[in-house]
Nucleic acid binder design. Sequence first.
DNA 1: CTGATAAGTCACCGATTGGTGACAACTAAT
DNA 2: ATTAGTTGTCACCAATCGGTGACTTATCAG
Lengths: 222, 222
Amino acid sequence: MTSHIPLPQGPVTADLASDRRRDRSATQQRILEAAQAILTEEGPSGFGVNAVARASGVDKQLIYRYFGGLDGLLSGLGERIAAWWQEKLLQGPSPTPMASYGALIEALALRVLHVMRTEPLAVQCALWELADNTQPVKALAAARGRALGAWMARAKGDLQPPDGVDAPAVNAMIISALSYMVLASRNAPTVIGLATDDEATWIRIETALRALIQGVYGAQAR
Amino acid sequence: MTSHIPLPQGPVTADLASDRRRDRSATQQRILEAAQAILTEEGPSGFGVNAVARASGVDKQLIYRYFGGLDGLLSGLGERIAAWWQEKLLQGPSPTPMASYGALIEALALRVLHVMRTEPLAVQCALWELADNTQPVKALAAARGRALGAWMARAKGDLQPPDGVDAPAVNAMIISALSYMVLASRNAPTVIGLATDDEATWIRIETALRALIQGVYGAQAR
DNA sequence: CTGATAAGTCACCGATTGGTGACAACTAAT
DNA sequence: ATTAGTTGTCACCAATCGGTGACTTATCAG
């Protein structure tokens, strides 16, 4: 936040600003941190070599040297964000084995909703995945998918969905619904007739979510 | 498609190319058509004054004269697309009064899914609404909302959702789920673990959709 | 202390963007 | 036929983009 301005740092004969010693890996780190910050704050459209160089106070030439260009930078950022997803999903109420399959999905859905609503980076990533289809961005989507899968595996135990219900399809729809509503609520005060700028609406959404899940997976053990 | 190249048309003393007589409203129409085509084919990121001018074979100066710039062009395009939405939603199986509230929502959801899957413009509009928050784009979203509402009003009759179910919230989630899945399937072969590049998966999604709706709105009259 | 090499810096490139000013060509009313 | 006003055309602008070449400066092995 404080280093967004490319410090004056003496044009010639720089004798100050040398508190930042020459350190390749530290510079790489600075670049990646700035890249993540840019994506978080400005979104995919504001992302680029120039913006990252500006925000990190590092000459863009170094981005090319260390990451080989925009694609390389994206790949590096992708790895960083993949780790971030793991952390964000796994933290919070620990995914202990659940009482029923419905409860498991409910917990997962609520967790996803919470992360999407509180983490701008999550939203920007989702947005990017929808708008862009270049390889590094696809890797981002894959990383999120893995994080979700890991969470499921940890919490599932030996629970099984009821017979006659296509659990993967239903689950995908539920996660999709939440993702879309959070994305859409960013730019519009009302989404499909729901006033998403009102906090009470999100309580209604959570309730509706429970109703949907109970409806398909049964009102069994809760 | 054929007029993407800005026809040579004699730099001086143009005696041909005058089959296109000087006609303001016709030119405006050409511009709007090209704008819609660009949005449909290239998406929001490819949209711009230069692109539209190029595609329509019209000098971009005229875009500024007749629409007052990019924002004005977007507004004009917005009106055009609002009408398009009305048409697309209302065509197909006419929204006759349904047997039950669940059946009504199911029909609406299937209609939306069909339009989203078969009309690239619908997808690009949704994408644009998510990525951009400028006024003309917001108007686009509002237009779609109105089209949906009109469909509902026409088909609803005096049906009422069962007591104890927050119908607006549930409906919004269902439409959101479908929207997100279609959007996400554009760039990724698999969405939340679902292979959306396989047509069979979409049948599963429709089935899951019915299960969800019956779950909340009851298995009553079908 | 001396070089070689890596790290950092700066000035540029071509392309593209949204946007304007000035001018030529056509149309229509007088 | 002359003229006024519209329509179309073209050349330009500043800003930004991703990307590169060439330079200075610091670090460290010998």
